[in-house]
Amino acid sequence: MPLKLVRVDDRLIHGQVVAVWLRAVGADRIVIVDDKTAQNEFLRDVLTLAAPQGTPVEVYGLTDGLARVTELASSPTSVFLLMRTPLTALRLRELGVQFDMLNVGGLGAGPGRHPLYKNISATDEEMAAMRTLEEMGTKVELRIVADDHGVPFASVDKR
């Protein structure tokens, strides 16, 4: 079935937040697409332990992730797709993964990162990626926790 939730969060799986989102959207599997995480066995183990008990977690790099997400999208599985940055979301979208909405829930501050909304910051490159996603018809919404109101990216994009 179509992806239940497509989310960008640089903390990836952090217990409570992910548990609430899973319940809110009715997803039963977490798929992480992130090259850095896929290459780090320790990080994969830590994130798998961090997921709510009983929720399978799969971690892939971009290429394998594309194949797996495409396969799952045409299966009965309801998937919560999680990435660390909007750049990955854009790559997947360009490579043919369909999603109408991108939830941006966690992008920390740091050098070269512009504050956007609450604790969400983005680099110029990430800003450009979110703009491109919107041009491709994917709504980009800033929303940290499930019971927040979503804020459209366009409304905070002061270019």
């Binding site: 903390r11 799986i13 952090h14 217990g15 409570q16 992910v18 320790f42 990080l43 183990d45 830590v46 994130l47 332990l49 961090a50 997921a51 709510p52």
Partner: peptide, 17 residues
């Protein structure tokens, strides 16, 4: 405090590494 929270995840990773 919280199993699966970010501080815990980061700490676990440091321990593993």
């Amino acid at each position: 405090d919280l199993l699966g929270g970010t501080p815990h995840n980061v700490a676990s990773l440091i321990c593993l590494e």
